[in-house]
Computed example of a mutant assay.
Amino acid sequence: MKYHSKKKAIVLLADGTIFYGKAIGDKEGTAVGEVCFNTGMTGYQEIFTDPSYFGQLMVTTNAHIGNYGTNPDEVESDSIKIAGLICKNFSYEYSRPSANMSLLEFLEKNNLFAISDVDTRALVSYIRDNGAMNALISTRVNDIETLKKELAEVPSMEGLELSSKVSTTEPYYFGEENSAYKISALDIGIKKNILRNLAKRGAYIKVFPYNTSFEEMSKWNPDGYFISNGPGDPEPLTEAISTTKEMIESNKPLFGICLGHQVLALANGVSTYKMHNGHRGINHPILNLVTGKGEITSQNHGFAVNREQTEANSALEITHVHLNDDTVAGIKMKGKEVFSVQYHPEASPGPHDADYLFDQFFEAIKTSRN
């Protein structure tokens, strides 16, 4: 194994708290963003390439990162989207036969600065108590005061529009052209696995940029509409919210996931808010209020839908709640085939409890066509 000099590095939080570690590989640098943590035991490659994490420093709570390498089939976008990585033990070697490169090579290919040897248990405990906040990681360990000034200039995630940073710039197609159904998807940070799940159920998808008008999306004469996941605060997405209102008025089936769920709520006059920590992991418990069944789900969001306003809205019904904190995890419009969830049914890290939501969407499309 090639020897890698481990340069000293730090995690500097916005409140001035410092955690110490070492740079991964030979790379020196500084990276800034909102610090958050994911509790998943596996799936680091999917996490790093998920557009919903754009602009965030990712703390992985699993003690070992990199031990199974990387595989080109396990990416959720065309590049790494996190701003930086913070972990405990980083594996420079990997043992999975299907991997094509080490995680270090993958990080270097994507020019991502990362640090290891951080007491991630202490860091996560601190974030849990004090909330998600801006932070930076750096090898400039002797330049703390300058780093503090640089960190103070970083904008808060609250009020930050980031979909434009990760959305496609031109429409594109996904799936087989002769498929049974056509779906217009609004890309506000879409994951590839969502498109795979739609396509394997018989859909040909046209994916549109985040600021596309409803008129443009409807020209394709789709059988249904989809609003994707994505990063940042949903409230600045005024064009997407306006387009969603017209999707609703079209009376065609509409399905939203994660940020798309929040946009659907905003289109119905329900506000969203920034959570203390957010939900990021692969074992979050959900209660389906329609069936009475529990679901184990994959989640990644730092904003949530206002529950009181949702309950007071005569057009909406809460279909799912998060069992840890009773936040809104799913909504449906009464009398319409319009629904959304705050979690990721396309991410099946073990349980496939939420797969039915895609089937539900296609059943609605079949019914609306008859």
Rank of each mutant, 00 (worst) to 15 (best):
K2T: 15
Y3D: 14
Y3K: 11
H4V: 14
K6D: 07
K7A: 14
A14M: 11
D15P: 03
I18N: 06
F19D: 03
A23D: 09
V32M: 06
N38E: 13
P51R: 04
G55D: 03
L57E: 09
M58R: 08
S79M: 14
S79R: 13
I82N: 13
C87M: 15
C87L: 15
K88E: 15
S91W: 13
Y92N: 11
Y92K: 13
S95F: 15
R96F: 10
A99D: 05
S102H: 11
S102I: 11
L107Q: 10
K109W: 05
N110R: 03
L112E: 02
F113T: 06
A114Y: 15
A114M: 06
S116G: 08
V118I: 14
D119L: 04
T120C: 05
R121G: 04
S125E: 10
Y126G: 01
I127A: 00
R128D: 03
D129T: 12
D129R: 09
D129C: 08
N130V: 03
G131S: 02
A132M: 07
I137D: 02
T139N: 01
R140W: 04
D143H: 03
E145L: 00
E145N: 00
E150Q: 10
S156N: 06
L160W: 06
L162Y: 02
S164V: 05
V166W: 12
S167V: 03
P171S: 14
N178T: 15
A180W: 05
G189Q: 01
K192I: 04
K192A: 03
I194N: 05
I194C: 09
L195H: 00
K200C: 06
A203M: 08
K206S: 05
K206N: 12
T212R: 03
E215P: 07
E216R: 10
M217K: 05
S218D: 11
S218M: 07
W220L: 14
P222Y: 08
G224S: 10
I227W: 01
N229K: 08
G232C: 07
P234F: 05
T238R: 02
S242N: 06
I248K: 01
S250H: 06
L254F: 05
F255Q: 00
I257V: 14
A265V: 00
A265Q: 00
N268H: 03
G281W: 08
I286P: 00
L287F: 07
N288P: 04
S298N: 13
Q299Y: 09
H301F: 08
V305I: 14
E308H: 13
S314Y: 00
I318F: 01
V321T: 08
I331V: 10
M333Y: 02
K336A: 01
K336H: 13
E337T: 07
E337Y: 09
F339E: 03
S340M: 04
S340W: 02
Y343H: 15
P345T: 12
P349W: 14
H352D: 09
A354E: 10
Y356H: 11
D359E: 14
Q360C: 09
T367W: 01
